[in-house]
């Protein structure tokens, strides 16, 4: 298993949750973070990071499956 896949999946899930909560959840909680909707912003960042890791991880696992002789 390429570790990038589970890392990517975890951060994609977290990104989706935070973006969703940031967009549709209560807006008065952001007083704490100086008025910035950090859930939306950082959630989007996690989502991008998660998707990139997920894509690379899955591609690698597909490649390894197609070339079993190269796998250490």
């Amino acid at each position: 298993m390429d570790l990038r896949a589970p890392i990517g999946l975890l951060f994609t899930l977290y990104g989706l949750i935070l973006v969703g909560y940031g967009a549709f959840g209560p807006q008065d909680i952001y007083v704490k973070s100086l008025g910035e909707n950090v859930n939306l912003h950082w959630g989007a960042a996690f989502l991008v990071f998660g998707l990139i890791m997920l894509i690379f991880g899955v591609l690698r696992m597909k490649y390894d499956a197609a070339h079993p002789d190269e796998v250490k």
């Binding site: 935070l18 940031g22 704490k32 950090v38």
Partner: peptide, 11 residues
């Protein structure tokens, strides 16, 4: 606790 709202606080 001071700066993170629910959501990021969970992270």
């Amino acid at each position: 606790m001071h700066y993170l709202p629910t959501g990021l606080l969970g992270i």
